[in-house]
């Protein structure tokens, strides 16, 4: 709980610092241009799974994303990816391979009346779904008096659904090249009831032993503009 509160504090602080409005008067044409934003399609890669791998080396994933900027306020976003898990500890050996998709919408809070400033402070929502095949080749239950018990659970396929609340920053670091990060508050909607094996980690959601999770993305995107400025 503490980390959620700390993250929330950092986010609120960043909104306070970054969402300040510049007091510049624009003429009619300039205001129209600013309101249009930078419509287009951006495609990118998320570097967070590689960073996550450093902290949790049993998990490895790849994620790419696409973002359609409608106008200065609204963006549609979709993310697809793959995750492989190979966990081997005293309690269990667990393997999983699965794919996921997340789709949703972002609202840009950043209001700067400056032509050519395409930075974003985003609040958004996502719906996520994942399918994975997983198995538990060994689990060991410790029982000091009667003796430990080791068993296995065969492979099965499970589907999961979740919702995400997104907060992120995105800025144009070079012409049409964006760097952005987001923090995600995820909550499980449903995990397929198939058998006795619960997923250790759900692709795109994270650890399953909590019904809410925090996630992070750090993406590099190339933006293909649809209109000339």
């Amino acid at each position: 709980m503490l980390k959620y509160l700390l993250s929330l504090s950092v986010l609120l602080l960043s909104v306070g610092v970054l969402a300040q409005k510049a007091d510049i008067k624009l003429n009619g044409d300039e205001e129209k241009k600013v309101n249009k934003g930078n419509p287009g399609l951006a495609v990118g890669i998320d570097l967070a799974p590689f960073i996550t791998h450093l902290f949790a080396n049993e998990r490895f994933g790849v994620e790419v994303n696409a973002r359609y900027t409608i106008n200065s306020k609204w963006q549609l976003a979709a993310e697809v990816g793959y995750e492989n898990v190979d966990l081997d500890n005293k309690q269990m050996k667990y393997t999983s391979n699965g794919s996921f998709i997340r789709a949703g919408i972002d609202y840009n809070l950043f209001r700067v009346e400056e032509i050519g400033n395409n930075d974003n402070i985003l609040l958004g929502l996502r719906y996520g779904a994942a399918v994975q095949e997983h198995s538990c080749p060994r689990y060991t239950i410790s029982e000091d008096y009667w003796g430990d018990v080791s068993q296995s659970i065969g492979a099965s396929t499970v589907g999961s659904h979740w919702a995400e609340f997104v907060f992120g920053l995105r800025s144009e670091v070079l012409k049409n090249f964006y760097m952005g990060w987001s923090v995600r508050f995820r909550t499980i909607i449903n995990v397929g009831v198939n058998n006795e094996l619960e997923p250790y980690s759900i692709p795109g959601f994270g650890r399953r032993d909590r019904s809410t999770n925090m996630g992070f993305t750090y993406s590099l995107e190339y933006h293909i503009p649809f209109r000339k400025k």
Binding site: K3, L18, A56, L169, S171, V173, W181, V183, F216
Partner: peptide
């Protein structure tokens, strides 16, 4: 006002650390 790249990276790193800071679970026997 542009979002400063340094601030961007600093905030990202701070939040990443918070997210990656996993609560250790206490296993009961």
């Amino acid at each position: 006002m542009k979002i400063k790249p340094f601030g961007h990276v600093f905030l990202a790193a701070t939040i990443l650390l918070l997210v990656a800071c996993d609560e250790s679970s206490l296993c009961l026997s």
